[in-house]
């Protein structure tokens, strides 16, 4: 359907004012940033908040800077286009710039904010349609499990719902060990490590992250790039004009000579949360970066995958892109998206 339901609207000028306007639950008040996700959900009548708090006038949330501690800090209102184009980001954390730049369309990237990208709802077509009363909307079943699931999760063990997390930046930020800074209604701030931010469907069926209704993301920080830290992001998609990933991956590691230190491998679009491939990381740590080792890491990255009826091919894709992304770290074969 095409028109929005009625709602109230506020446009605060500072993060503190914005946080003060937030309400006690999601049906009451929500943050409105670029609106790329929220307005669609409202038009589809998946959500119908009474009030929108437009934070686009909170200029204090628009910055990309590197602090003395070496950390890269990005304000919640920075757009995907700005991240993709930022020399600071591209130099220090190429995976993040690549993830932002390969998401969506140029027009969407100009509006879509980092905060919104992290908090957007999943793209499962059953969730997004009011015709399907699925688990996540309070219904009694996950239609994707037995239904049309070519784009759904492959790590499904123990998951009542098999969405994949939609955020591309979350994949890169998880590999980079980022933290999210949150301001809440009372004025208190807290910091949530990326690894603790997202919720699997077994942890929570209604929400995909730990934010409370009166939380406002103000900042995302990526710890100082240790010397020699490299990162790379690859996204595979059916269409080369905008398309959601079939599979995406971010890898980050330091290279000492040819030896891999502290590798992080995070699969996107594979599970209800960005999926850390711990076994593959463990295997690769302190080994030389060779085709064989990268390929082995690819195999290990999908260990434990339980694909659904239509998405077994995704397992193959992850093996390939994990290998390619790791090799791209060595400056070898350019990972192709």
């Amino acid at each position: 359907m095409s028109s929005l339901p009625e709602f109230e609207y506020a446009t605060p000028a500072t993060p503190a004012e914005a946080a003060a306007l937030l309400g006690p639950d999601w049906t009451d008040t929500v943050v409105y940033a670029g609106g790329m996700d929220l307005l669609d959900l409202m038009k589809e009548r998946i959500t119908a908040p009474k009030r929108l708090v437009n934070i686009k006038k909170c200029d204090a949330l628009r910055f990309i800077r590197t602090d003395d501690d070496g950390a890269l800090r990005l304000g919640a209102l920075v757009t995907l286009a700005e991240i993709a184009a930022s020399d600071t980001v591209r130099t220090a954390h190429p995976a993040l710039a690549q993830a932002a730049g390969l998401a969506a369309t140029p027009q969407v990237r100009n509006m879509a904010t980092l905060g919104g990208n992290l908090c957007q709802r999943p793209r499962c077509w059953y969730l997004r349609s009011e015709d399907f009363p699925c688990l996540r909307k309070g219904g009694d079943r996950c239609y994707a499990k037995e239904g049309e699931n070519r784009y759904h999760a492959i790590f499904t063990e123990g998951e009542p719902c098999v969405i994949v997390h939609p955020s591309a930046t979350a994949v890169a930020l998880s590999a980079l060990g980022a933290e999210i800074k949150v301001l809440s209604k009372g004025g208190a701030t807290r910091t949530i490590p990326m690894a603790e931010f997202f919720l699997t469907s077994s942890q929570n069926l209604q929400r995909e992250n730990v934010l409370k209704p009166d939380d406002l993301i103000v900042e995302v920080s990526v710890p100082g790039a240790a010397r020699g830290l490299r990162s790379h992001y690859i996204k595979l998609r059916e269409k080369q004009s905008y398309d959601w990933p079939l599979a995406d991956v971010a890898v980050a590691a330091r290279l000492e000579g040819a030896t891999v230190r502290d590798p992080r491998i995070v699969l996107g679009s594979a599970a209800p949360v960005p999926h850390r491939a711990a076994k593959a990381e463990e295997f690769l740590a302190n080994k030389p970066l060779t085709e064989e080792n990268a390929a082995r890491a690819g195999e290990l990255a999908v260990e434990g995958a339980k694909p659904l009826a239509q998405n077994g091919y995704k397992v193959t894709l992850y093996k390939v892109i994990v290998r390619r992304a790791l090799m791209a770290l060595a400056g070898g074969e350019e990972g192709r998206s």
């Binding site: 793209r123 077509w125 399907f132 049309e148 959601w244």
Partner: peptide
């Protein structure tokens, strides 16, 4: 089409993919 409910799951231009 979803076979269990008999409904089209991609009646939009996001999921019904057209060459760009």
């Amino acid at each position: 089409m979803d076979r269990a409910r008999g409904l089209m799951v991609n009646p939009n231009f996001m999921d019904y993919k057209i060459a760009g």
